[in-house]
């Protein structure tokens, strides 16, 4: 077994521990920043959908504020955003390197995109359903929970899948700026030391991650559609 590994991955097999660690790090980054960003984006998405024109809590000031902020952040390329955030990241996470240092920029980087995705998922909920919720005498909070979220669930799962896949891409970028994870591993060994097997094995790992997310997403989305 070890021999096969050594034959196929002559360089990577020398640094197996580091390779495993980088996988764990990527999983940590995706999971922690994904969960926090999901909660934030759900809130922001709900704020956008409820305060938009004709929404259940229409408020053009709040809507415009969030709308403009999202556009602002989305217009900054991620790699520049990471650099710009470094002082703030130090302040919040205590460090700008390692997994801990990547979480804040990852969350700031993905949340605007995620919020837009959630907004579009929620806007797929038929206005007629909202109207009938209002006619039933449901409160705005009940409409958000019992209509928007409940009826939007399969779209929310779909956009979450897309977002997690983008997030996996971002973790590779953030790794380069001293973060660790698969991206960092691929750059350090594959790119800087020209060890092709390190690059390929990183690609395969990312491919597996993305496939699992995609399959899971499709499965849950189907389950929640009636």
């Amino acid at each position: 077994m070890d021999n096969v590994l050594q034959f196929l991955l002559p360089n990577v097999s020398q640094v197996m521990d580091e390779f495993y660690l980088s996988i764990i790090q990527t999983l940590q980054m995706v999971f922690v920043s994904g969960v926090i960003s999901f909660v934030l984006s759900l809130i922001i998405g709900i704020v956008l959908i409820s305060t938009r024109k004709g929404g259940i809590l229409a408020n053009s000031f709040v809507f415009n504020l969030f709308d403009k902020l999202i556009n602002l952040f989305r217009s900054i390329p991620f790699i520049i955003l990471i650099a710009a955030l470094i002082p703030l990241t130090r302040l919040i996470s205590g460090t700008a390197v390692g997994v801990q240092g990547t979480l804040f920029p990852l969350i700031v980087g993905i949340t605007p995109f995620f919020s837009r995705q959630i907004e579009s998922a929620l806007s797929e909920v038929d206005d007629g359903l909202i109207e009938s919720g209002i006619a039933m005498g449901l409160s705005s909070f009940q409409i958000i929970v019992s209509v928007y979220l409940k009826e939007g669930i399969s779209s929310i799962v779909r956009v979450t899948t897309i977002t997690v896949i983008s997030l996996i891409g971002l973790t590779a970028i953030v790794g380069v700026v001293g973060g660790g994870g698969i991206g960092d591993f691929a750059i350090r060994y594959g790119y800087q030391q020209n060890q092709l097997d390190a690059t390929y094995v990183s690609i395969i790992v990312l491919l597996i991650f993305v496939s699992i997310v995609q399959i899971l997403g499709t499965f849950i989305s189907k389950k929640t559609t009636h």
Binding site: D126, L129, S132, V147, K150
Partner: peptide
């Protein structure tokens, strides 16, 4: 006050 609609507006889920 009950209300019904042309498109029924039942919750699909």
């Amino acid at each position: 006050i009950g209300m019904i609609f042309q498109q029924f507006n039942l919750m699909p889920s």
